[in-house]
């Protein structure tokens, strides 16, 4: 099995990390870049595949050279064997379409170079925290012309039969789960509900071995990262970056915080008098008034 996991570096939107300017626009320079939170579900699905079915995992991302840190983070969690960074000034300001073109080309390029049967599976998270479009994965899959399984919550691969069986949420609804099958190679978008299962001791022992192996590799992650630019991928500059992007972001409007509509009264639970007043006030409400 050779699998590829797509990941992206996004601004760290967590409280205390993210910085906005006075107009409410994101300050990229002042906000650290982290691995897209949703990608961890893809990583977990890929890790389960590696642990249960063995094989090679490549991490892939498109972005500036600084994304190598993101790849390191990804390598640590998926125990990836190596990583590919699609990186070139010519790719800057790409929309999801131009990004998908570049990623498809890179996966095809990898496919040609992988010994024994090429790439079997590609995993992606279901949307990025910055763009939130959810386009890039499916468009990349469209470019590859592979079957796609989305909102996958559990996965079982029969390598010999060349088939994947998955449970997926129908229309993203946890209440409705269907079981689907697809031939390999295929593209899997892992849902945040994805839960890896390791029900065999052998799997857990392998998992433990991989963890030890990977810690070492992730420390020297630069040695395992291959960077590809547009020439390397033989991509026409007209089809990548801003020039290759049919959509543009014209502006971003901050959504103002809604004002609180109610006055809050703080009551100290140890203040007997205040608590008594509170109860007295609430008693009529309990009666439906």
């Amino acid at each position: 099995m050779h699998t590829v996991v797509l990941t992206k570096g996004v601004p760290d939107f967590r409280e205390g990390q993210v910085a906005f300017d006075e107009d409410g626009h994101l300050e990229r320079g002042a906000t650290p870049t982290v691995m897209n939170p949703n990608d961890k579900h893809a990583l977990r699905a890929a890790l389960q595949t590696k642990v249960r079915n063995g094989g090679h995992v490549s991490l892939m991302s498109m972005g500036p050279p600084g994304f190598k840190e993101v790849l390191q983070e990804g390598m640590e969690s998926v125990y990836a064997d190596d990583a590919y960074l699609v990186s070139d000034r010519a790719f800057a300001a790409a929309d999801t379409w131009a990004t998908s073109i570049a990623l498809t080309t890179a996966i095809e390029r990898l496919d040609e170079h992988v010994a024994e049967g090429g790439v079997d599976m590609v995993f992606a998270g279901f949307k990025t925290a910055d763009g939130e479009t959810g386009h890039t994965g499916p468009q990349t899959c469209w470019g590859l012309d592979w079957p796609i399984l989305t909102h996958v919550v559990s996965l079982d691969i029969d390598e010999e039969a060349g088939r994947v069986r998955a449970k997926r949420l129908v229309e993203g609804d946890i209440e409705e789960i269907e079981t689907v099958e697809a031939p390999l190679p295929c593209f899997v978008v892992a849902d945040p509900e994805f839960e890896p299962t390791y029900r065999k001791a052998a799997h857990r022992l392998t998992h433990k071995d991989l963890r030890e192996e990977t810690q070492e590799r992730a420390q020297n992650h630069e040695e395992h990262v291959t960077v590809w630019d547009h020439e390397e991928l033989n991509l026409d500059p007209d089809y990548v970056g801003l020039d290759g992007s049919p959509t543009i972001v014209s502006s971003v409007d901050p959504i103002p915080r809604a004002p609180a509509e109610r006055d809050a009264t703080m009551v100290d639970p140890d203040d007997g008098e205040a608590m008594r007043e509170l109860v007295e006030e609430m008693v009529p409400l309990a009666g439906g008034e």
């Binding site: 249960r52 559990s154 996965l155 079982d156 029969d158 039969a161 088939r163 069986r165 998955a166 449970k167 079981t179 839960e195 299962t197 029900r199 065999k200 001791a201 052998a202 799997h203």
Partner: peptide, 19 residues
Amino acid sequence: MSEPTDGASGGDGEYEHYE
């Protein structure tokens, strides 16, 4: 092939064995 989440991922229904 087994169900994805029931855990018998080997697919053959055999239990693991250790000495």
